[in-house]
Design a protein around this nucleic acid. Structure first.
Lengths: 201, 201
DNA sequence: GGTACAACCGGACCATGGTCCGTTTATTCC
DNA sequence: GGAATAAACGGACCATGGTCCGGTTGTACC
Protein backbone atom coordinates (compact mmCIF):
# COMPACT_ATOMS: atom_id res chain seq x y z
CA UNK A 1 0.00 0.00 0.00
CA UNK A 2 1.48 3.25 -1.08
CA UNK A 3 0.24 6.28 0.77
CA UNK A 4 1.39 8.87 -1.72
CA UNK A 5 -1.00 11.75 -1.67
CA UNK A 6 -1.64 14.70 -3.86
CA UNK A 7 1.01 17.25 -2.94
CA UNK A 8 -1.60 19.88 -3.52
CA UNK A 9 -3.61 18.58 -0.64
CA UNK A 10 -1.02 18.95 2.04
CA UNK A 11 -0.46 22.34 3.67
CA UNK A 12 2.54 24.05 2.15
CA UNK A 13 5.08 26.29 3.80
CA UNK A 14 3.62 29.00 6.03
CA UNK A 15 2.08 31.65 3.84
CA UNK A 16 1.53 35.20 4.80
CA UNK A 17 -2.00 36.06 5.86
CA UNK A 18 -2.68 38.32 2.90
CA UNK A 19 -1.40 35.68 0.55
CA UNK A 20 -3.73 33.08 1.99
CA UNK A 21 -6.62 35.48 1.84
CA UNK A 22 -5.91 36.35 -1.75
CA UNK A 23 -5.53 32.72 -2.74
CA UNK A 24 -8.96 31.98 -1.36
CA UNK A 25 -10.41 35.05 -2.99
CA UNK A 26 -8.90 34.13 -6.33
CA UNK A 27 -10.14 30.57 -6.16
CA UNK A 28 -13.68 31.53 -5.35
CA UNK A 29 -13.68 34.26 -7.97
CA UNK A 30 -12.32 31.79 -10.49
CA UNK A 31 -15.05 29.32 -9.69
CA UNK A 32 -17.65 31.98 -10.20
CA UNK A 33 -16.19 33.03 -13.52
CA UNK A 34 -15.92 29.41 -14.51
CA UNK A 35 -19.54 28.71 -13.89
CA UNK A 36 -20.51 31.84 -15.71
CA UNK A 37 -18.28 31.79 -18.77
CA UNK A 38 -16.81 28.34 -19.09
CA UNK A 39 -13.18 27.39 -18.80
CA UNK A 40 -12.24 28.69 -22.23
CA UNK A 41 -13.09 32.21 -21.24
CA UNK A 42 -11.21 32.17 -17.98
CA UNK A 43 -8.22 34.41 -18.51
CA UNK A 44 -5.58 35.22 -15.96
CA UNK A 45 -5.94 38.91 -16.50
CA UNK A 46 -9.70 38.73 -16.32
CA UNK A 47 -9.50 36.79 -13.09
CA UNK A 48 -7.13 39.35 -11.60
CA UNK A 49 -9.40 42.18 -12.55
CA UNK A 50 -12.53 40.42 -11.30
CA UNK A 51 -10.83 39.79 -7.98
CA UNK A 52 -9.54 43.35 -7.80
CA UNK A 53 -5.93 42.20 -7.70
CA UNK A 54 -2.90 42.51 -9.91
CA UNK A 55 -2.05 40.01 -12.57
CA UNK A 56 1.33 39.38 -11.00
CA UNK A 57 -0.38 38.23 -7.86
CA UNK A 58 -2.36 35.60 -9.70
CA UNK A 59 0.77 34.22 -11.27
CA UNK A 60 2.69 34.31 -8.04
CA UNK A 61 -0.01 32.27 -6.31
CA UNK A 62 -0.53 29.65 -8.96
CA UNK A 63 2.51 29.81 -11.16
CA UNK A 64 0.61 29.43 -14.40
CA UNK A 65 -2.82 29.03 -15.80
CA UNK A 66 -2.40 25.30 -15.62
CA UNK A 67 -1.41 25.61 -11.98
CA UNK A 68 -4.59 27.50 -11.26
CA UNK A 69 -6.73 24.94 -13.02
CA UNK A 70 -4.97 22.21 -11.14
CA UNK A 71 -6.01 23.77 -7.86
CA UNK A 72 -9.54 24.23 -9.07
CA UNK A 73 -9.58 20.55 -9.87
CA UNK A 74 -7.93 19.54 -6.69
CA UNK A 75 -11.16 18.92 -4.86
CA UNK A 76 -12.51 16.63 -7.54
CA UNK A 77 -9.27 14.71 -7.79
CA UNK A 78 -8.78 14.40 -4.09
CA UNK A 79 -12.26 13.07 -3.64
CA UNK A 80 -11.76 10.57 -6.44
CA UNK A 81 -8.45 9.55 -4.96
CA UNK A 82 -9.98 9.07 -1.55
CA UNK A 83 -12.61 6.86 -3.03
CA UNK A 84 -10.28 4.55 -4.87
CA UNK A 85 -7.78 4.41 -2.05
CA UNK A 86 -10.10 3.91 0.88
CA UNK A 87 -13.71 4.06 -0.23
CA UNK A 88 -16.12 1.15 -0.50
CA UNK A 89 -15.59 -1.63 -3.01
CA UNK A 90 -15.51 -2.30 -5.86
CA UNK A 91 -13.61 0.96 -6.30
CA UNK A 92 -11.91 0.82 -2.93
CA UNK A 93 -10.13 -2.04 -1.15
CA UNK A 94 -12.05 -5.25 -0.65
CA UNK A 95 -12.84 -6.23 -4.19
CA UNK A 96 -10.63 -8.27 -6.49
CA UNK A 97 -7.88 -6.22 -8.16
CA UNK A 98 -9.37 -6.62 -11.60
CA UNK A 99 -12.76 -5.48 -10.43
CA UNK A 100 -11.16 -2.47 -8.83
CA UNK A 101 -9.39 -1.66 -12.06
CA UNK A 102 -12.62 -1.90 -13.96
CA UNK A 103 -14.35 0.32 -11.43
CA UNK A 104 -11.48 2.80 -11.51
CA UNK A 105 -11.85 3.41 -15.21
CA UNK A 106 -15.62 3.47 -15.13
CA UNK A 107 -15.61 6.02 -12.36
CA UNK A 108 -13.05 8.10 -14.12
CA UNK A 109 -15.07 8.15 -17.30
CA UNK A 110 -18.18 9.06 -15.34
CA UNK A 111 -16.33 11.99 -13.84
CA UNK A 112 -15.14 13.07 -17.26
CA UNK A 113 -18.69 13.01 -18.51
CA UNK A 114 -19.53 15.71 -16.01
CA UNK A 115 -16.37 17.67 -15.38
CA UNK A 116 -14.69 16.88 -18.64
CA UNK A 117 -13.97 20.33 -19.91
CA UNK A 118 -12.29 21.49 -16.77
CA UNK A 119 -10.30 18.30 -16.40
CA UNK A 120 -9.17 18.47 -19.97
CA UNK A 121 -8.19 22.11 -19.75
CA UNK A 122 -6.15 21.32 -16.68
CA UNK A 123 -3.71 19.06 -18.37
CA UNK A 124 -2.77 21.05 -21.36
CA UNK A 125 0.69 21.62 -22.59
CA UNK A 126 2.32 18.69 -24.32
CA UNK A 127 4.81 18.20 -21.52
CA UNK A 128 3.03 19.00 -18.29
CA UNK A 129 0.34 16.54 -19.22
CA UNK A 130 2.14 13.68 -17.56
CA UNK A 131 3.60 15.43 -14.60
CA UNK A 132 0.38 16.32 -12.85
CA UNK A 133 0.11 14.72 -9.42
CA UNK A 134 -3.41 13.40 -9.88
CA UNK A 135 -2.36 11.59 -12.98
CA UNK A 136 0.69 10.15 -11.29
CA UNK A 137 -1.47 8.94 -8.43
CA UNK A 138 -3.89 7.26 -10.78
CA UNK A 139 -1.13 5.57 -12.71
CA UNK A 140 0.48 4.34 -9.53
CA UNK A 141 -2.84 2.92 -8.47
CA UNK A 142 -3.16 1.07 -11.73
CA UNK A 143 0.35 -0.32 -11.34
CA UNK A 144 -0.40 -1.62 -7.90
CA UNK A 145 -3.62 -3.26 -8.96
CA UNK A 146 -1.97 -4.85 -11.96
CA UNK A 147 0.69 -6.37 -9.73
CA UNK A 148 -1.89 -7.55 -7.24
CA UNK A 149 -3.74 -9.19 -10.08
CA UNK A 150 -0.61 -11.14 -10.87
CA UNK A 151 -0.01 -9.36 -14.15
CA UNK A 152 2.85 -11.06 -15.95
CA UNK A 153 4.01 -8.26 -18.24
CA UNK A 154 5.79 -4.93 -18.00
CA UNK A 155 3.74 -3.15 -15.37
CA UNK A 156 5.39 0.21 -15.87
CA UNK A 157 4.70 0.36 -19.57
CA UNK A 158 1.21 -1.09 -19.39
CA UNK A 159 0.20 1.31 -16.66
CA UNK A 160 1.17 4.11 -19.02
CA UNK A 161 -0.84 2.52 -21.78
CA UNK A 162 -3.90 1.97 -19.64
CA UNK A 163 -4.01 5.42 -18.14
CA UNK A 164 -3.50 7.00 -21.55
CA UNK A 165 -6.80 5.42 -22.40
CA UNK A 166 -8.54 7.52 -19.77
CA UNK A 167 -7.08 10.82 -20.91
CA UNK A 168 -9.66 13.58 -20.68
CA UNK A 169 -9.09 14.94 -24.15
CA UNK A 170 -9.26 11.46 -25.64
CA UNK A 171 -12.45 10.39 -23.94
CA UNK A 172 -14.13 13.69 -24.66
CA UNK A 173 -13.20 13.44 -28.28
CA UNK A 174 -14.56 9.93 -28.58
CA UNK A 175 -17.78 11.07 -27.01
CA UNK A 176 -18.34 14.44 -28.60
CA UNK A 177 -16.32 14.26 -31.76
CA UNK A 178 -17.14 10.70 -32.70
CA UNK A 179 -20.52 10.40 -31.07
CA UNK A 180 -19.53 7.34 -29.09
CA UNK A 181 -21.67 7.14 -25.98
CA UNK A 182 -19.83 7.20 -22.68
CA UNK A 183 -21.30 3.82 -21.93
CA UNK A 184 -19.43 2.30 -24.85
CA UNK A 185 -16.22 4.00 -23.82
CA UNK A 186 -16.63 2.58 -20.33
CA UNK A 187 -17.45 -0.89 -21.63
CA UNK A 188 -14.40 -0.59 -23.82
CA UNK A 189 -12.28 0.12 -20.79
CA UNK A 190 -13.62 -2.92 -19.00
CA UNK A 191 -13.03 -5.13 -21.99
CA UNK A 192 -9.52 -3.78 -22.41
CA UNK A 193 -8.65 -4.33 -18.78
CA UNK A 194 -9.92 -7.89 -18.74
CA UNK A 195 -8.08 -8.76 -21.90
CA UNK A 196 -4.86 -7.22 -20.70
CA UNK A 197 -4.98 -8.78 -17.27
CA UNK A 198 -5.38 -12.37 -18.42
CA UNK A 199 -2.22 -14.43 -18.19
CA UNK A 200 -0.07 -14.25 -21.29
CA UNK A 201 -0.65 -17.15 -23.68
CA UNK B 1 -9.24 -1.99 -48.34
CA UNK B 2 -9.68 1.68 -47.70
CA UNK B 3 -7.65 3.96 -49.87
CA UNK B 4 -8.09 7.11 -47.79
CA UNK B 5 -5.02 9.21 -48.14
CA UNK B 6 -3.58 12.16 -46.34
CA UNK B 7 -5.48 15.15 -47.67
CA UNK B 8 -2.23 17.03 -47.38
CA UNK B 9 -0.66 14.81 -49.97
CA UNK B 10 -3.11 15.46 -52.75
CA UNK B 11 -2.79 18.61 -54.81
CA UNK B 12 -5.25 21.20 -53.57
CA UNK B 13 -7.20 23.74 -55.57
CA UNK B 14 -5.13 25.61 -58.15
CA UNK B 15 -2.95 28.03 -56.30
CA UNK B 16 -1.56 31.18 -57.74
CA UNK B 17 2.04 31.00 -58.83
CA UNK B 18 3.32 33.43 -56.23
CA UNK B 19 1.47 31.56 -53.52
CA UNK B 20 3.04 28.29 -54.55
CA UNK B 21 6.45 29.87 -54.68
CA UNK B 22 6.05 31.39 -51.25
CA UNK B 23 4.78 28.14 -49.78
CA UNK B 24 7.89 26.36 -50.99
CA UNK B 25 10.10 29.17 -49.76
CA UNK B 26 8.46 29.11 -46.35
CA UNK B 27 8.73 25.36 -46.02
CA UNK B 28 12.39 25.27 -46.87
CA UNK B 29 13.13 28.24 -44.64
CA UNK B 30 11.21 26.57 -41.85
CA UNK B 31 13.21 23.40 -42.25
CA UNK B 32 16.43 25.35 -42.05
CA UNK B 33 15.32 27.18 -38.92
CA UNK B 34 14.15 23.92 -37.46
CA UNK B 35 17.46 22.24 -37.91
CA UNK B 36 19.22 25.22 -36.50
CA UNK B 37 17.10 26.16 -33.52
CA UNK B 38 14.79 23.26 -32.75
CA UNK B 39 11.05 23.25 -32.99
CA UNK B 40 10.52 25.20 -29.79
CA UNK B 41 12.24 28.22 -31.23
CA UNK B 42 10.36 28.23 -34.49
CA UNK B 43 8.05 31.21 -34.33
CA UNK B 44 5.67 32.30 -37.03
CA UNK B 45 6.96 35.83 -36.99
CA UNK B 46 10.54 34.67 -37.05
CA UNK B 47 9.81 32.44 -40.00
CA UNK B 48 8.14 35.28 -41.87
CA UNK B 49 11.09 37.53 -41.25
CA UNK B 50 13.63 34.88 -42.20
CA UNK B 51 11.79 34.27 -45.44
CA UNK B 52 11.45 37.97 -46.13
CA UNK B 53 7.67 37.80 -46.13
CA UNK B 54 4.84 39.15 -44.05
CA UNK B 55 3.42 37.31 -41.11
CA UNK B 56 -0.03 37.35 -42.64
CA UNK B 57 1.29 35.38 -45.57
CA UNK B 58 2.57 32.64 -43.34
CA UNK B 59 -0.80 32.32 -41.67
CA UNK B 60 -2.67 32.45 -44.93
CA UNK B 61 -0.60 29.59 -46.30
CA UNK B 62 -0.72 27.30 -43.31
CA UNK B 63 -3.60 28.51 -41.21
CA UNK B 64 -1.82 28.12 -37.93
CA UNK B 65 1.42 27.06 -36.42
CA UNK B 66 0.07 23.57 -36.09
CA UNK B 67 -0.85 23.62 -39.75
CA UNK B 68 2.68 24.54 -40.66
CA UNK B 69 4.13 21.77 -38.52
CA UNK B 70 1.68 19.35 -40.07
CA UNK B 71 3.04 20.15 -43.50
CA UNK B 72 6.58 19.84 -42.29
CA UNK B 73 5.68 16.43 -41.02
CA UNK B 74 3.76 15.48 -44.08
CA UNK B 75 6.70 13.82 -45.74
CA UNK B 76 7.43 11.61 -42.77
CA UNK B 77 3.79 10.67 -42.33
CA UNK B 78 3.18 10.03 -45.98
CA UNK B 79 6.18 7.77 -46.18
CA UNK B 80 5.05 5.87 -43.10
CA UNK B 81 1.58 5.59 -44.50
CA UNK B 82 2.87 4.30 -47.80
CA UNK B 83 4.85 1.65 -46.00
CA UNK B 84 2.02 0.32 -43.92
CA UNK B 85 -0.49 0.49 -46.75
CA UNK B 86 1.55 -0.96 -49.54
CA UNK B 87 5.10 -1.64 -48.41
CA UNK B 88 6.66 -5.03 -47.74
CA UNK B 89 5.45 -7.22 -44.88
CA UNK B 90 5.25 -7.48 -41.98
CA UNK B 91 4.30 -3.80 -41.99
CA UNK B 92 2.56 -3.92 -45.34
CA UNK B 93 0.07 -6.39 -46.76
CA UNK B 94 1.03 -10.04 -46.84
CA UNK B 95 1.60 -10.74 -43.17
CA UNK B 96 -1.03 -11.80 -40.66
CA UNK B 97 -3.10 -8.89 -39.33
CA UNK B 98 -1.71 -9.24 -35.83
CA UNK B 99 1.83 -9.19 -37.09
CA UNK B 100 1.06 -6.11 -39.09
CA UNK B 101 -0.38 -4.44 -36.02
CA UNK B 102 2.71 -5.28 -34.04
CA UNK B 103 4.92 -3.95 -36.80
CA UNK B 104 2.82 -0.81 -37.07
CA UNK B 105 3.41 0.17 -33.47
CA UNK B 106 7.06 -0.80 -33.50
CA UNK B 107 7.67 1.29 -36.57
CA UNK B 108 5.78 4.18 -35.13
CA UNK B 109 7.80 4.11 -31.96
CA UNK B 110 11.01 3.89 -33.96
CA UNK B 111 9.99 6.99 -35.85
CA UNK B 112 9.18 8.77 -32.62
CA UNK B 113 12.61 7.95 -31.30
CA UNK B 114 14.09 9.97 -34.12
CA UNK B 115 11.55 12.61 -35.05
CA UNK B 116 9.77 12.71 -31.75
CA UNK B 117 10.02 16.39 -30.96
CA UNK B 118 8.64 17.52 -34.25
CA UNK B 119 5.88 14.95 -34.24
CA UNK B 120 4.91 15.88 -30.73
CA UNK B 121 4.90 19.58 -31.45
CA UNK B 122 2.67 18.95 -34.44
CA UNK B 123 -0.26 17.66 -32.49
CA UNK B 124 -0.61 20.21 -29.81
CA UNK B 125 -3.80 21.82 -28.75
CA UNK B 126 -6.10 19.63 -26.67
CA UNK B 127 -8.67 19.46 -29.43
CA UNK B 128 -6.79 19.37 -32.70
CA UNK B 129 -4.82 16.42 -31.42
CA UNK B 130 -7.33 13.94 -32.72
CA UNK B 131 -8.34 15.62 -35.91
CA UNK B 132 -5.01 15.41 -37.69
CA UNK B 133 -5.25 13.37 -40.89
CA UNK B 134 -2.18 11.24 -40.20
CA UNK B 135 -3.63 10.18 -36.91
CA UNK B 136 -6.96 9.40 -38.46
CA UNK B 137 -5.26 7.31 -41.10
CA UNK B 138 -3.33 5.37 -38.50
CA UNK B 139 -6.40 4.74 -36.44
CA UNK B 140 -8.34 3.59 -39.45
CA UNK B 141 -5.53 1.21 -40.28
CA UNK B 142 -5.66 -0.23 -36.80
CA UNK B 143 -9.41 -0.68 -37.07
CA UNK B 144 -9.10 -2.55 -40.31
CA UNK B 145 -6.42 -4.84 -38.99
CA UNK B 146 -8.39 -5.54 -35.84
CA UNK B 147 -11.36 -6.57 -37.91
CA UNK B 148 -9.25 -8.69 -40.20
CA UNK B 149 -7.86 -10.40 -37.14
CA UNK B 150 -11.39 -11.32 -36.16
CA UNK B 151 -11.43 -9.06 -33.14
CA UNK B 152 -14.62 -9.69 -31.20
CA UNK B 153 -14.94 -6.43 -29.29
CA UNK B 154 -15.76 -2.79 -29.95
CA UNK B 155 -13.37 -1.98 -32.77
CA UNK B 156 -14.04 1.75 -32.71
CA UNK B 157 -13.28 2.18 -29.06
CA UNK B 158 -10.32 -0.14 -28.99
CA UNK B 159 -8.74 1.53 -31.98
CA UNK B 160 -8.90 4.75 -30.02
CA UNK B 161 -7.33 3.05 -27.06
CA UNK B 162 -4.58 1.45 -29.05
CA UNK B 163 -3.59 4.52 -30.97
CA UNK B 164 -3.59 6.60 -27.80
CA UNK B 165 -0.81 4.34 -26.69
CA UNK B 166 1.38 5.55 -29.55
CA UNK B 167 0.86 9.23 -28.87
CA UNK B 168 4.08 11.15 -29.40
CA UNK B 169 3.95 13.06 -26.14
CA UNK B 170 3.21 9.87 -24.21
CA UNK B 171 5.98 7.80 -25.71
CA UNK B 172 8.48 10.59 -25.38
CA UNK B 173 7.58 11.08 -21.78
CA UNK B 174 7.97 7.39 -21.02
CA UNK B 175 11.34 7.42 -22.66
CA UNK B 176 12.81 10.70 -21.50
CA UNK B 177 10.88 11.46 -18.37
CA UNK B 178 10.73 7.97 -16.97
CA UNK B 179 13.88 6.56 -18.50
CA UNK B 180 12.08 3.65 -20.09
CA UNK B 181 14.04 2.50 -23.11
CA UNK B 182 12.22 2.63 -26.42
CA UNK B 183 12.75 -1.10 -26.71
CA UNK B 184 10.59 -1.67 -23.66
CA UNK B 185 7.92 0.66 -24.95
CA UNK B 186 7.88 -1.25 -28.22
CA UNK B 187 7.78 -4.61 -26.48
CA UNK B 188 4.95 -3.24 -24.38
CA UNK B 189 3.03 -2.39 -27.53
CA UNK B 190 3.48 -5.87 -28.90
CA UNK B 191 2.39 -7.45 -25.66
CA UNK B 192 -0.63 -5.19 -25.48
CA UNK B 193 -1.68 -5.94 -29.03
CA UNK B 194 -1.39 -9.68 -28.60
CA UNK B 195 -3.35 -9.63 -25.39
CA UNK B 196 -6.07 -7.44 -26.83
CA UNK B 197 -6.42 -9.41 -30.02
CA UNK B 198 -6.97 -12.79 -28.44
CA UNK B 199 -10.58 -13.95 -28.44
CA UNK B 200 -12.53 -12.83 -25.42
CA UNK B 201 -13.03 -15.37 -22.64
C1' DG C 1 -2.31 44.32 -74.84
C1' DG C 2 -5.97 45.84 -71.71
C1' DT C 3 -9.28 45.17 -68.20
C1' DA C 4 -11.61 43.01 -64.26
C1' DC C 5 -11.46 40.28 -60.53
C1' DA C 6 -10.10 37.06 -57.35
C1' DA C 7 -6.31 35.79 -54.74
C1' DC C 8 -2.47 37.25 -52.43
C1' DC C 9 0.50 40.20 -49.59
C1' DG C 10 2.13 42.85 -45.59
C1' DG C 11 2.31 44.56 -41.31
C1' DA C 12 -0.36 46.98 -37.87
C1' DC C 13 -3.26 45.32 -34.39
C1' DC C 14 -5.33 42.28 -30.76
C1' DA C 15 -5.53 38.78 -26.92
C1' DT C 16 -3.38 36.28 -23.66
C1' DG C 17 0.12 33.79 -21.00
C1' DG C 18 4.04 34.95 -18.57
C1' DT C 19 8.04 37.99 -16.50
C1' DC C 20 10.11 41.86 -13.86
C1' DC C 21 11.04 45.00 -10.47
C1' DG C 22 10.11 49.06 -7.68
C1' DT C 23 6.83 49.68 -3.88
C1' DT C 24 3.98 48.16 -0.01
C1' DT C 25 2.95 45.31 3.92
C1' DA C 26 2.83 41.39 7.28
C1' DT C 27 5.68 39.48 10.63
C1' DT C 28 9.30 39.02 13.95
C1' DC C 29 12.28 40.50 17.32
C1' DC C 30 13.90 43.93 20.28
C1' DG D 1 5.72 50.65 19.53
C1' DG D 2 9.52 50.67 16.20
C1' DA D 3 12.93 48.84 13.14
C1' DA D 4 14.41 45.18 9.97
C1' DT D 5 13.39 41.79 6.75
C1' DA D 6 11.32 38.76 3.77
C1' DA D 7 7.28 38.12 1.33
C1' DA D 8 3.60 39.87 -1.36
C1' DC D 9 1.74 43.19 -4.53
C1' DG D 10 0.67 45.52 -8.93
C1' DG D 11 0.84 46.76 -13.34
C1' DA D 12 3.92 47.91 -17.06
C1' DC D 13 6.27 45.11 -20.23
C1' DC D 14 7.42 41.18 -23.35
C1' DA D 15 6.67 37.25 -26.68
C1' DT D 16 3.92 34.93 -29.59
C1' DG D 17 -0.14 33.02 -31.94
C1' DG D 18 -3.67 34.79 -34.58
C1' DT D 19 -6.81 38.42 -37.15
C1' DC D 20 -7.86 42.22 -40.39
C1' DC D 21 -8.05 45.04 -44.19
C1' DG D 22 -6.25 48.35 -47.57
C1' DG D 23 -3.16 47.91 -51.24
C1' DT D 24 -0.88 44.88 -54.82
C1' DT D 25 -0.47 41.37 -58.33
C1' DG D 26 -1.29 37.17 -60.99
C1' DT D 27 -4.63 35.28 -64.22
C1' DA D 28 -8.36 34.81 -67.36
C1' DC D 29 -10.93 36.58 -70.77
C1' DC D 30 -11.83 39.71 -74.34
Amino acid sequence: MDARQLPLAQPTQPERADATRNRALLLSTARALLEQNGVDNLTMDGLARAAGLGKGTVFRRFGSRTGLLLELINEIETEFQRRFLSGPPPLGPGAAPIERLVAFGRERIAILAVQGDLLRAADEGPDARFVSPPRAAGQLHISILLRQAGFDGDVDVQSFNLIATLDAALVLYENRGEQIEMRRVADGWEDLVRRVARPRS
